[in-house]
Design a protein around this nucleic acid. Structure first.
Lengths: 341, 341
DNA sequence: TTGAAAGCGTTACCAA
DNA sequence: TTGGTAACGCTTTCAA
C-alpha cells in the first residue's frame, strides 16, 4: 500500500482537498473577504498593500490566501455556505460598511474571524486598526500651526470607522487650536477621485474663503487638487491640502501632496498573526492592535514664506498615538500598540 | 428525519461544503488564478474590469468567484493541491507569463480550464483574447496617416502574448506604410508606469528625432508623457502618443491620451461562458473567442494644423479585426468573432 | 512497521 | 413518498 502511494506520487497524484478537509476539518487556506465592488477594489492602492502584507505572512506558513469580494446585492447565505465548508480555517474581513450578518454567524459557528479596521462590534472580535484619529489630528494640527484658520475637511464614508474616526481627529484638532469646526466645513466623500472632486466643489461654493483642506484619502485629494487648480486657487499659497494614506500617487500630484502615512503592510501582517493565534486557541481572548501613523509633509501644505526643513523632499512628523476607544495616549513600542482586552 | 432537517434549517444550519464536495464532486465555485504580484494586481484597472465582467455572469448562476494570486516564487504544488479539491468546478487563468505547469496538470485531471489571453498552448485550451495585433495596427496606422515618420514603440513584456502581439501590430503597420521598423525603435516595458518612464528615456536617447510613440498600455503611456514633457517635447506637436487599454486615466493625462479600447468586461463574460460550456460538456471542443478593438482618438495624437472631427471630445475608429493565428481578416458579428476549432 | 477499519457530512441510490 | 444505507477520499486509530 505504501508502495502504491509512492508510485502514485511519482505520477501527478494530488490528494483531494475535499476528502482531507472532511476528515480533518482543516484546509490550509485563509479567506479574505473584501466588502467592496470589484471595480473599486482593484483601483485602490490601500487594499493592494494590505493584501500584500497578508499574503506575505501566509505564504510562510504554507497557507493559501483566497480572496472573496461579495457584491453588495448578493445574499449573505451564499457566502455563508461557502465559508462554512473547509474553505478557510479562518476568515479575515476588511472594508465592512455598516454592519453585516456574516461575521456574527461565522463566530457562532466557531470560525475564527479577524477584522481589518474596527468592526461594528469591537468587543467580540479581534481586529487591527490604524490610529485614524491620531493621524487626522496630526494632519490638521500641522495645518493650524502653519497659520491656517479656516480648515475644511473632505471625509470618508461616515458608516466606516476609518471615515468617521478621521473626521473626529479633524474636529479634535480644531478644538485644540481654538478654531471653528463648523458643520459646513465638512463634506463627505466616498474615497474615490470623483467623490473628491464633487466634495471640493461643494466646499468652495459654501466656504469660498477656506485656506486649508484635510482630505481623508489621497485618491480624493487628487480630485480636490484638480478642482482647486481649476478654481484658480494656488496650492499651498492660497489653500493648503493634506491627504491620507500616503499612496504613491501623493508624490506625483501637482504640487506633491502632504499625507498621513499608515503602515498598511504591517496591518496585514498583524491581521494574520491575530488570526493564527485564534486558530491555535479558539477560545482565547479577543485582541486589538492599533498601529500609529506618521505625517509626511510635502509641498501641498508648506507655509508660504517660511520653508520647513528639507522642503524639497519633505519631512515626517510622528503622530501622537490616540487610543480611540479609551481616550488615552500611549507611546507605542516600535509603532505598535498591542492591547489585551 | 425530514422534521429534524426542517427544524435545523430554521436555526442557522448551513451544510458543510466539504461533505457536499466529497459526495458530489461539485462546489458551485469558480476559481480565477491571476499570475501577478498582489501589488501589481491591485493597481491595474484592466484586471479590475476583467474581474467585474467575470463576477457579473457568475453571480447569475449562483456561483462564488474565488480569487487566487500565487506569488511568483511559490511552488506550483500548493496551488495544484488547492485546486485539486472541490474548490472550484472550473478554473479561469489570466496574465500567465511564459509557461507554467499548472494548466497542463489541471487539464490532465479533467478540470475545465479557460484562459484570458492566448495561452502558450493555444490548441489545447479554450480561451478569450482581444485582437491585440489589430488594435496596435489601427493605432500605428493612425499615427502614420497623421504624417508621422519615425514611430517608436514601448512594448509590453515579450513573454506575454498581449505584449508580443501588440509589437507585431506595430511592425505590420509600419511595413504597410513603408516606414522603417528598426529594432532600436522598440523598447520593452513591463506594463507599469515606472517601466514606461524608463523606456521613454531610453528611446529619446537612442532616437532623439522620433515623432511618435505607440505605447502598449496607458499606465506606461502616462509615464512616457511625463518624460516627454520633462524633455521639452510638446505632445502632440513634436511627438504623438497612443496608448492601449483606454483606462479612465487616459482622459485625465495631459494632454488626454489616444488609446486602443478593448472590451474587457466582455472578455470576462465570455470567459465564464466558455467555462460553463466546458463544465457541461467536459470533452467538448476547445473554443476560441477573439474580441475586436476600437481606437479612441484624443489630443495626444492630433495632427498639428489639421484638426480631426470632434477634436475636443475625441472620436473613434473601428480597428480591422485581424485573426492572429490564421492571418485572415473578418468582420466580427457585434464585435465578437467566435471561431470553432 | 504495516495493514485494516472507522468516521468525517453529504448526496444518491434502493428498498420498503 | 419515505427511511435506511452505501459511497465519496482522506486521516486517524487500533490491532496485528
Amino acid at each position: 500500500m505504501r508502495a502504491v502511494k509512492r508510485a502514485a506520487r511519482t505520477l501527478d497524484y494530488v490528494p483531494s482537498q475535499a476528502g482531507r478537509a472532511l476528515a480533518t476539518g482543516r484546509s490550509d487556506a485563509v479567506t479574505l473577504v473584501i466588502f467592496e465592488s470589484t471595480t473599486f477594489l482593484f483601483g485602490d492602492p490601500f487594499l493592494g498593500r494590505l493584501v500584500h502584507g497578508i499574503d506575505e505572512v501566509l505564504a510562510l506558513g504554507e497557507r493559501q490566501l483566497v480572496l472573496l469580494a461579495p457584491h453588495a446585492g448578493s445574499e449573505p447565505d451564499r457566502l455563508d455556505r461557502y465559508l462554512a465548508g473547509a474553505h478557510g480555517e479562518g476568515v479575515l474581513m476588511v472594508s465592512l460598511h455598516g454592519s453585516h450578518p456574516l461575521p456574527g454567524r461565522l463566530a457562532a459557528r466557531g470560525i475564527p474571524v479577524v477584522f481589518g479596521g474596527r468592526p461594528p462590534d469591537p468587543d467580540h472580535f479581534s481586529y487591527v486598526d490604524v490610529d485614524n484619529r491620531g493621524g487626522a489630528l496630526a494632519a490638521v494640527s500641522h495645518l493650524a500651526s502653519g497659520g491656517r484658520r479656516t480648515i475644511a475637511t473632505i471625509t470618508g464614508p461616515q458608516d466606516m470607522p476609518a471615515g468617521y474616526d478621521r473626521m473626529l481627529g479633524w474636529r479634535s484638532a480644531l478644538e485644540a487650536a481654538h478654531l471653528a469646526a463648523d458643520d459646513d466645513l465638512a463634506e463627505p466623500g466616498d474615497f474615490t477621485r470623483a467623490g473628491g472632486v464633487r466634495a471640493m466643489r461643494t466646499l468652495l461654493q459654501r466656504r469660498p474663503r477656506l485656506d486649508a483642506v484635510f482630505v481623508a484619502s489621497d485618491t480624493m485629494a487628487s480630485g480636490a487638487l484638480q478642482v482647486l487648480a481649476g478654481a484658480g486657487r494656488r496650492v499651498p499659497e492660497d489653500v493648503a491640502v493634506v491627504g491620507f494614506n500616503d499612496d504613491p500617487l501623493a508624490e506625483t500630484t501637482y504640487p506633491p501632496l502632504s499625507s498621513v502615512r499608515q503602515p498598511v503592510e504591517e496591518m496585514g501582517r498583524e491581521m494574520v498573526q491575530l488570526l493564527l493565534e485564534l486558530i491555535r486557541t479558539p477560545h482565547g481572548a479577543r485582541r486589538r492592535v492599533v498601529l500609529s501613523t506618521q505625517l509626511q509633509v510635502r509641498r501641498s501644505s508648506a507655509t508660504p514664506g517660511q520653508e520647513g526643513p528639507g522642503v524639497t523632499e519633505g519631512y515626517r512628523i510622528e503622530a501622537i498615538h490616540t487610543d480611540i476607544d479609551r481616550q488615552l495616549t500611549r507611546a507605542p513600542r516600535d509603532g505598535r500598540a498591542l492591547l489585551p482586552r
